[in-house]
Simulated scan of single mutants.
Amino acid sequence: MHAAIIERFPDWATARPQRIQRPAAEWVALGSEYDIGHVVRLWQRVMRFHIDQLPGDESVMWQLADKLQGRCSDIVRIQEAIVSIERGHMAAFREQIDWLWEFLADEHGDHRYRWCRDVGEWIRIETELPPITGLEDARRAVDIIDALMDVAANNVVYLREDA
């Protein structure tokens, strides 16, 4: 009769994983490369005048700008002209586009224009500073941001502490 060999611990060569697996990222499709590029370019233009509002070097908006210019990014990808970002960065993205939307709404708000009967359209009040962004660019960006808000609302969870 042969004695049974009982191994208490498995052999390291068979039990140890060969490579640590990174969890699969969940991607959220934002929209077309053309539309997202317009919003990012407008955001960059505005940031030139609001340096105090600049986010860190690794923020999602800088990653978007880099990826749209063909550089490498871990949190942004473009496939078939659709821009996607990792779900974990949606809150930071939402904060940035919220800020941009509020800025554009203030810069081109009704309080900065008056109706001109001679021309038959709204014109900017002379005492107001010239806008950073053009009116048509701002309107297009606001429409794109409104569409992005639906995507962001479904993919961002804010935790609030009740006061």
Results as ranks from 00 to 15, higher is better:
M1G: 15
M1R: 11
H2L: 13
H2W: 09
H2R: 15
A3N: 08
A4V: 13
E7W: 12
R8Q: 11
R8L: 14
D11P: 00
A13K: 14
T14L: 10
T14W: 09
T14G: 04
T14M: 08
A15D: 04
A15Y: 03
P17F: 06
P17E: 11
P17I: 10
Q18M: 07
Q18W: 01
Q21C: 01
R22A: 10
P23F: 09
A24K: 14
A25K: 15
E26W: 08
V28D: 02
L30E: 02
S32I: 01
E33A: 10
Y34A: 11
Y34K: 12
Y34N: 07
Y34L: 08
V40E: 01
L42R: 06
W43T: 03
Q44E: 12
Q44H: 06
R48T: 09
H50R: 14
D52Q: 10
D52M: 01
Q53R: 13
L54G: 04
G56E: 14
G56W: 07
E58M: 12
L64D: 00
A65S: 07
D66S: 06
D66K: 12
K67C: 09
G70I: 04
C72I: 13
S73Y: 05
D74S: 15
D74H: 13
D74F: 10
V76Q: 03
R77Y: 05
I78H: 01
Q79D: 11
E80V: 09
I82H: 00
I82N: 00
I82L: 01
S84Y: 03
S84M: 10
G88I: 04
H89G: 01
M90D: 02
A91L: 13
A91C: 01
A92N: 08
F93G: 02
F93E: 01
F93D: 01
R94L: 09
E95V: 05
D98A: 10
L100H: 06
W101L: 12
F103I: 04
D106F: 11
D106V: 13
D106Y: 12
E107W: 08
E107K: 11
E107D: 11
H108G: 05
H108L: 07
G109D: 05
D110M: 12
D110E: 12
W115F: 15
D118N: 11
D118V: 09
V119C: 09
V119E: 12
G120P: 02
G120C: 08
E121V: 11
E121W: 09
E121R: 15
I123V: 15
I123C: 06
I123M: 11
R124D: 03
R124I: 05
I125V: 14
P130H: 07
P130V: 12
P131E: 06
P131N: 03
T133D: 04
G134Q: 07
L135I: 09
E136F: 07
D137Y: 03
D137M: 06
A141N: 00
A147G: 08
L148E: 08
L148D: 06
L148T: 07
L148G: 03
D150I: 14
D150A: 14
D150L: 14
V151T: 14
N154I: 01
V156M: 04
V157Y: 07
V157A: 11
L159E: 12
E161L: 13
